[in-house]
């Protein structure tokens, strides 16, 4: 496996994401720039310029026409994916940490920070798929989080039925996707341990969380029951589910300020692969020399990209050995 190194950013990566067809890879970092790459060969297609601060999050819409982004400049922006042109900006009192489209692409959600007297919120805007058309100015839904319990990450469930949010206190909430009513709130991670990442399965019926408490958990969207958990020895920043194989990929590492004396080894800057069902660790991929901040897997499961504190995106295309790996029980089961 020969990774492709993408050097489009000068500062730490914050999120990487594939589009639905998996041919494009988007990356954002603290350096204000959004990059888009062809995932097959790592060629940079373009950049979306306009954010005035760190960009925290991006999401391409399912039809790959619109790109939504959010950042420390307190805005959510909508871009023409093809040309890089900015066509809508929504402003907020605080930074935006997550954006995500519904699976029909008609709504986008965003989470805003709690700061300076403003409580954290989750906002939902309808999106007009026509780039030339008019976009709304006001959100169709606004969920206000309790103080000290802001939503760090949020995602849509299947059919936009629920909004699932991961909070800074380590709990996960389920909100009605239409009314914003909180239906469930379950402590999932250690109290007070930030949930750093949340990624939905392809059909958005379950999701994986990654937390500073060094664990990742797979949770049922409907009940918020914990289905699987993965314990590691390092604070986690990101967790991704793989398509095609029943694996998960976790990334993290001691923060730079805690690693002073050291080679990359002690910081544990490795992507860790676990078996999704058996919860065993099955391998690691080295390469970054800062903590891994974000990991995304190709929707068809053929490659994955990781973005690090070191400013690099590393794009890995799996080779045969990866696809061949199977537990004995899976094999016998497969034969039946």
């Amino acid at each position: 496996m020969r990774p492709i190194l993408l050097q489009g950013h000068e500062r730490a990566l914050t999120q990487v994401k594939y589009n639905k067809d998996g041919d494009l890879l988007f990356s954002v970092s603290k350096d204000h720039v959004i990059c888009v790459w062809y995932s097959q060969n790592g060629e940079r297609l373009g950049t979306y310029n306009g954010h005035q601060g760190a960009v925290w999050t991006i999401d391409p819409n399912p039809s790959s026409t619109i790109l939504a982004s959010g950042g420390a400049d307190n805005t959510i922006r909508l871009w023409d994916m093809k040309t890089g042109k900015l066509f809508k900006t929504w402003e907020f009192p605080t930074a935006v940490k997550r954006v995500e489209f519904t699976e029909d692409g008609l709504f986008v959600l965003g989470t805003t920070e709690e700061r300076m007297g403003h409580l954290g919120t989750i906002v939902v805007y309808p999106v007009n798929p026509d780039i030339e058309g008019e976009q709304v100015n006001e959100p169709s839904l606004r969920i206000v989080c309790e103080t000290k319990k802001k939503a760090v990450v949020a995602a849509w469930s299947y059919l936009g039925k629920y909004i699932i949010a991961g909070h800074e206190d380590g709990s996960v909430s389920q909100y009605d996707g239409k009314t914003g009513e909180q239906l469930l709130n379950v402590p999932v991670h250690e109290r007070g341990m930030l949930i750093m990442d949340m990624q939905m399965s392809a059909d958005k019926t379950y999701f994986i969380t990654a937390s500073k408490d060094k664990s990742a958990k797979i949770i049922d969207v409907k009940t918020l029951n914990i289905l699987k958990k993965f314990e590691t020895d390092t604070p986690l920043n990101t967790a991704a589910l793989t398509a095609k194989k029943e694996f998960v990929i976790l990334g993290g590492g001691q923060e730079a300020m805690n690693v002073t004396t050291t080679s990359a080894r002690q910081g544990k800057f490795e992507a860790r692969f676990y078996h999704k069902i058996f919860e065993d660790e099955i391998g690691r991929v080295r390469g970054h020399f800062g903590p891994l901040n974000t990991i995304a897997v190709h929707p068809a499961g053929v490659s994955y990209a990781s973005g690090g504190e070191d400013g690099y995106v590393r794009l890995h295309h799996f080779d045969k050995g990866y696809f061949d790996f199977m537990y004995e029980v899976e094999r016998t089961r497969a034969q039946h």
Binding site: I277, F278, Y327, E328, V329, E330, R333
Partner: peptide, 12 residues
Amino acid sequence: IIEARRRLLEEW
């Protein structure tokens, strides 16, 4: 171990 794995797989 194999028994346990089989069970996990079935459940999943």
